[in-house]
Amino acid sequence: MRILLVAGALALTLAACQTAQESAVDAEFTCREAGLRPGTRSYDRCVNAAYNSNRRQADQAASQVAVGTAAALVGGAVLGAATAPRGYYYRCNAWGCW
């Protein structure tokens, strides 16, 4: 079960990441589709703005995945602790349990 959770968390983390090269290619494609010509000042501004937007979105997605993974791990630990058998951990005698 743990292996399945770790594999799922790793897959989500990798799916949310976009490399800098992918961001740059996507930015160039977006600006060409908008009708701007490569080499012009407006094209360069468009590429820079689109690249920064892509990187910001990738960073936000990666941090959301990290928070979700951390919450899942904490939730699993809490659930595991709540369902653990208690008889093994406590000793009782005439004066009480500890």
Rank of each mutant, 00 (worst) to 15 (best):
R2T: 05
I3F: 12
V6I: 10
A7D: 02
A9I: 14
A9S: 09
L10P: 00
L12T: 04
L14Y: 08
L14H: 04
Q18E: 07
A20W: 03
A20Q: 11
E22W: 01
E22V: 03
S23I: 01
S23F: 02
A24S: 11
V25I: 13
A27Y: 00
F29Y: 10
T30G: 02
C31Y: 02
C31N: 03
R32F: 04
R32H: 07
A34K: 14
R37E: 13
S42G: 01
Y43K: 02
D44K: 05
V47S: 00
V47G: 00
A50E: 08
N54L: 02
A58V: 02
Q60Y: 08
Q60L: 15
V65M: 07
A66C: 08
A66T: 06
T69P: 01
A70W: 11
A71G: 13
A71P: 00
A72P: 00
V74K: 08
V78H: 03
V78Y: 04
L79P: 00
G80W: 13
G80R: 13
A81D: 10
A82F: 10
A84V: 08
A84Y: 09
P85W: 09
R86P: 02
G87W: 04
G87P: 01
Y88G: 15
Y89F: 15
C92R: 09
C92V: 10
A94G: 14
A94H: 11
W95R: 12
C97V: 11
C97N: 06
C97Y: 04
C97P: 03
W98S: 13
W98V: 09
